[in-house]
Design a protein around this nucleic acid. Structure first.
Lengths: 341, 341
DNA sequence: GTGTATAATGTAAACGTTTACATAAATCAT
DNA sequence: ATGATTTATGTAAACGTTTACATTATACAC
């Protein structure tokens, strides 16, 4: 009971396999009467083209691989939804790879594309991509890759990318905290090596320095970008002899954990401690109090990344293109107030 | 500058392509000296097997398609993470399809499997799958499909599935509300046709009926399983002349929206209105107040679904297997209290 | 060293499409 | 009706693997 192939259809319809193929791929080339015969045969056999064979023949998979730290994070969900909107309309499927626990090395990822598992690859805030083992310098440059949400360091800037200006955004956020009179501002970052938050930390440090405040290492805690990590980090921060009056979290997810930990400690937000997030996920506005944060146009980032990738795939590769910077925005809600002390 | 093929490697190593292939797939079959030659040639050419050709030849993609309403929902994120844990270790990749806005019809989904885009398919709380157009009755039964999170209606019970007992769980939740003295209990459901919540609604109705309370249609509002939908639904519920003293939401995501809307209305949870969720996502415990809800073992469901699917793919198809029921649990936190009135 | 058993390699077909090219059929002007 | 032109169909090669089978090389016993 093996599935019907194009040959079966051809035989049943009394035509050649080429004609059947044309009926499917460029129906206007075949005469009406023949087309009907073939369609009838297709119906009878229950034929559906074997994608494996087709992909092989065409040398394309119509699949895009998306590599990202965590699909669960509501910000990435937003980006994904932008990507999906474009991929849907252009006939691509999405292969998702979470690097959450580093189950997949960059080399493996590179191998997937080289070995044609996907036609292109979107790197969302991943670690520095691609060791040199798998990909020669040339082939690396020839690979359809677009980076989203995070600029990649120096030597690899041949890859196109789209993201906000993370440094500026984090500086703005910090400056807002400063403008409200805060001096003791803590920062909860991602993993130490996380590209995603490195620039935000840089913006934070920059603003603090400019304000003449020494943001020593005990102002910074790592929350691993997760809810639980942030709860832990906040506990540590609060147990310090001189606790902060404001905490700036590198993403909203951590801000949620942070706020929870503060309340669980019997303190109030923003009366005792102010909290600032980053991303403006769908949860920001329903938090209690609603979260003051930095808005990133998640869907737009996703859309532009995907459009960009399509361009890379379908047109010629663009060398050393400048990153696309999309605008961010400080969203003032109610989780930040002037310090009480 | 086209990528190297197995031929190039063979030529460079001075062996036949068969030997190269064996070096990759069953190295023990080839002599050490030859293997080294070949490996050297592979290194020099930068060869990596063309997955397209390999898949074609082998008739397998090593890809599983997962169809689910929304990757953004933290519950599904949990299920996905269970699926991923198993798929990773067994060498499968995941193709994700959100049906969120019904961009993809069931027929299209069926077509994907028939046309070999994926080796198997996991349906997470999707609508009733598969029209009859694409799939004949026999091939439908022959398809490696496993259903997660929701039993599928009557005639299709040939598909294996794993999920909790939704009816019983929802009944328990409602009974808990009743035991706290609530009589005016509202229910916020998903879309009217959503399989995911239909059974939960049934459990709710059942418990209400058993308690001798008439749960008329104005006790039930649709929140579309989304945050925003639940906010809207709650507003409607609160504006009734005789508002409920407790609201049971068909998932935690909606409970978050619900709680927000209640607070935004100047009321307090649980003093004025109690809120009950369903899923026990990672946010449940950090809500303010922490959410009383039904725990579903999301990761376990994902793992078992995936194991089940692997079995379907690798062993013979199982006809009419009974659904696997995993345990749920009522988690009592602080969003439910005795009614004040 | 011969013959036999075993291990290693080579040869060639097959998988199901798409497509360049060749051929046959239909259309049209005369 | 004939030939010229256009349109529709058929033929066959190609894509890069894997693998059954045939062949050759190696090891081993005598």
């Amino acid at each position: 009971m093996t599935t019907a192939s194009i040959k079966d259809v051809a035989r049943l319809a009394g035509v050649s396999i080429a004609t059947v193929s044309r009926c499917i791929n460029s129906p206007e080339q075949v005469r009406d009467t023949t087309r009907e015969k073939v369609q009838e045969a297709i119906r009878q056999t229950g034929y559906s083209p074997n994608t494996l064979a087709r992909n092989f023949r065409r040398g394309k998979t119509q699949v895009i691989m998306v590599v990202l730290p965590s699909v669960g994070d509501p910000f990435f969900t937003g980006v994904m939804s932008g990507i999906r909107a474009v991929s849907d309309e252009s006939g691509y499927s999405l292969l998702i790879n979470e690097t959450q626990f580093n189950t997949m090395t960059e080399d493996e990822i590179g191998a997937m594309v080289v070995s044609k598992l996907a036609d292109g690859i979107i790197l969302l805030a991943s670690m520095s991509p691609f060791g040199t083992r798998v990909l020669s310098a040339e082939s690396r440059r020839a690979l359809p890759i677009v980076i989203g949400c995070e600029a990649i360091s120096s030597e690899l800037d041949a890859f196109p990318s789209v993201h906000i200006d993370n440094v500026a955004a984090a500086r703005e956020a910090t400056e807002y905290l400063l403008s409200q009179g805060h001096r003791k501002i803590a920062f909860i970052s991602g993993q130490p090596d996380s590209l995603l938050t490195r620039e935000r930390e840089e913006g934070y440090r920059h603003a603090m320095k400019e304000a003449g405040i020494d943001a020593g290492n005990d102002c910074i805690a790592s929350g691993g970008l997760t809810l639980g990590g942030a709860i832990e980090a906040t506990r540590v921060l609060l147990s310090r002899k001189d606790p902060p009056s404001a905490i700036f979290c590198a993403n909203d997810e951590m801000a949620m954990g942070c706020m929870h930990a503060i309340k669980a400690n019997g303190l109030s937000v923003p009366r005792d401690i102010s909290v600032m997030g980053f991303d403006d996920t769908r949860y920001a506005k329903i938090m209690d109090p609603p979260l003051t944060t930095i808005y990133q146009p998640a869907e737009e980032i996703g859309e532009r990344v995907m459009y960009r990738l399509l361009h890379e795939i379908e047109e010629e590769r663009s060398h050393g293109s400048k990153p696309e910077i999309v605008p961010h925005k400080l969203i003032i809600r109610r989780s930040v107030a002037r310090p009480s002390g």
